[in-house]
Design a protein around this nucleic acid. Structure first.
Lengths: 341, 341
DNA sequence: CTGAAAGCGCTAACAA
DNA sequence: TTGTTAGCGCTTTCAG
């Protein structure tokens, strides 16, 4: 039904090979070029990518395998990956495993079956079975967001420790000592690192670490809400809280509103990621900005390089630094004391 | 490198054709079946889907083309579509056009080039150029969420009018007459219909329609925030507000908090979609529930049917009814009056 | 039930 | 430069 390269050859009176060469950018006599171009026009010829893929054992598709499409981090990453790879002629397939290790493994197998040219993985499973599978298949792989111990691979990371260390230091410089943190699951790589940064900042200033100031919000909106409630209801609640991802930040913010606490008078708040909420609310929220776009771009760029066969300095581990934005959502404790006199 | 069907044939001592038949479920002598199975095992043979696709002119992939991955509605739909199509052997490709008509057209072309077997479209462009392109290409297409006038196609819809008509009637039954609505863009199909339902309910009860009670929030969180501010600052503000999508609902809720208004004492609130926020906040919010999962499932099911060549009752237009959940986020105006005495 | 052979649309090596 | 030809891995007639 659709025109093939053979039809173009026939119509232009040239051979298959010549037409193929023209299409692939090899030199062709000018007169013939015109002939071919006309034939392509008239027949509305479109090269068949499937056949091309069969021939070249390439599919020009790459997959992004991620835990959950509802995470703002994940969807943002996908967008920036696409923006790099699409102009290069690649389709980007998005697959989510719904926070399920078995599903993740199954989808990995599935993607390998479908023969994508490369995979960008935001891992869910922490044992690295997906990674083994992909590497055994010799499919180029870039991991984003985490390091899985014992499974070296090209990786794009945030300096997670710094992302919490700096803000907590900032709070300390404002005379806060009662500083809480809302974390993700304890088995989660980024959550662990962000907690480490928090602890490091406190330790350096000889502020004791209180376990009740560390509340797990599971990286979800509801979890953040509950965690903030727990913090606020402590006998001696913190005067400042660092929240280590965006979804929990929304929940925590709503909890604070429901409790009728004032930001920053009653509680100073620093959150994570530069996403819609932070600039809308009053006062706008302080946050650690993860350069999501650049991270996605880096992942795409590195994957492209690997797919071209360039394995220089493998495995490459790229660590991005967070950027800090401080607003009126935090205040100095001294000032507050002054005001209260 | 990877084993082919030819290797399996050689190893099992049978012919290419026989092995192919076995793989595709055609009957084979039992003894031979064992031979083949063993060979497949030993060689770790995986059928090459690209070659299969070339032969059958099928790719076993379908695309979901949508305006924005950050919309909760879109990601939920993708999940349910996947849950149906994946077990049937299809890859689901997600493509977003970033609320850009040209990009949408470009990606449509791109998907058609990649030869997906079918497309599920949540349209952005309202002129229907994408639809023309897809239909001209004879690629099965299901449209979700909207009807584009003059472009008949299989479509899965919400009864948008009912989704606002009912809640507004409910508010009227609680003696509200000053009822506001926060809408999406006026050019947006669902927004228009939801506004129609609002107007219809008011008209039926002879409540005049006030233009200043109709505020556009552009289906975004920030828009919802601003729209609610405008409503609250009216000289004679509404006592109840219906918000016609989830993202705006978040914004409106934050605005209400910032204004220190009480729900429902100062303002009764009914929102849209059963997504995380509504059940977390205090009081939980009332809402019109769009059966997103079923809508996605229906779209996937219908697309599958079309891809099988079954064009019975084309074009099929499936309309889903919303479900209503009423909570303490709305109150009767009489009760409130009583309390105030 | 099985095997041989043709061909899906394309590219690349080779010869002219 | 151009044309010819041999496949990429698979399915599907058509004989046997």
């Amino acid at each position: 039904m659709a025109a093939t390269i053979r039809d173009v050859a026939k119509k232009s009176g040239l051979s298959l090979g010549t037409v193929s060469k023209y299409i692939n950018g090899h030199p062709v006599k000018d007169a013939n070029r015109i002939l071919i171009e006309n034939a392509i026009q008239e027949l509305n010829y479109k090269p068949n990518n499937i056949a091309k893929g069969l021939r070249n054992s390439q599919t020009f598709s790459v997959a992004v395998l991620l835990p959950m499409l509802t995470s703002n981090f994940c969807t943002s990453i996908v967008s920036s990956i696409e923006s790099y790879l699409l102009p290069k002629g690649y389709t980007v397939i998005v697959c989510e495993c719904h926070n399920d290790s078995d599903m993740e493994l199954q989808k990995t197998r599935f993607l390998l079956d479908r023969m994508v040219d490369g995979i960008i993985l935001i891992p869910y499973d922490t044992t690295g079975r997906q990674i083994d599978l992909i590497q055994k298949n010799n499919t180029p792989l870039i991991i984003v967001d985490q390091i899985i111990n014992g499974h070296p691979a090209d990786t794009i990371l945030l300096n997670n420790e710094l992302a919490s260390y700096e803000p907590v230091k900032k709070l300390i410089s404002l005379n806060h000592t009662k500083i809480g943190i809302i974390t993700g699951g304890s088995d989660h790589y980024t959550s662990q690192k962000r907690l480490d940064g928090y602890k490091k900042a406190l330790s350096e200033h000889h502020i004791p670490i209180r376990e009740d100031y560390i509340q797990c919000g599971d990286y979800s909106t509801e979890g953040g809400y509950q965690a903030m409630l727990r913090l606020a209801k402590l006998q001696n609640p913190p005067t400042a809280v660092f929240i280590s991802n965006y979804d929990m930040e929304i929940g925590a913010y709503i909890a604070i509103n429901n409790l009728k606490l004032q930001i920053p008078q009653d509680i100073s708040l620093i959150g994570f990621d530069n996403l819609p909420l932070v600039s809308i609310v009053n006062p706008p929220l302080s946050f650690s900005e993860q350069p999501i776009d650049e991270m996605g771009l880096d992942a795409a760029r590195l994957l492209y390089q690997r797919m071209q066969g360039d394995m220089s300095n493998y495995p490459d581990i790229v660590i991005h630094n967070p950027v800090f934005h401080y607003t009126d959502s935090i205040c100095s404790l001294k000032n507050k004391a002054n005001e209260e006199y």
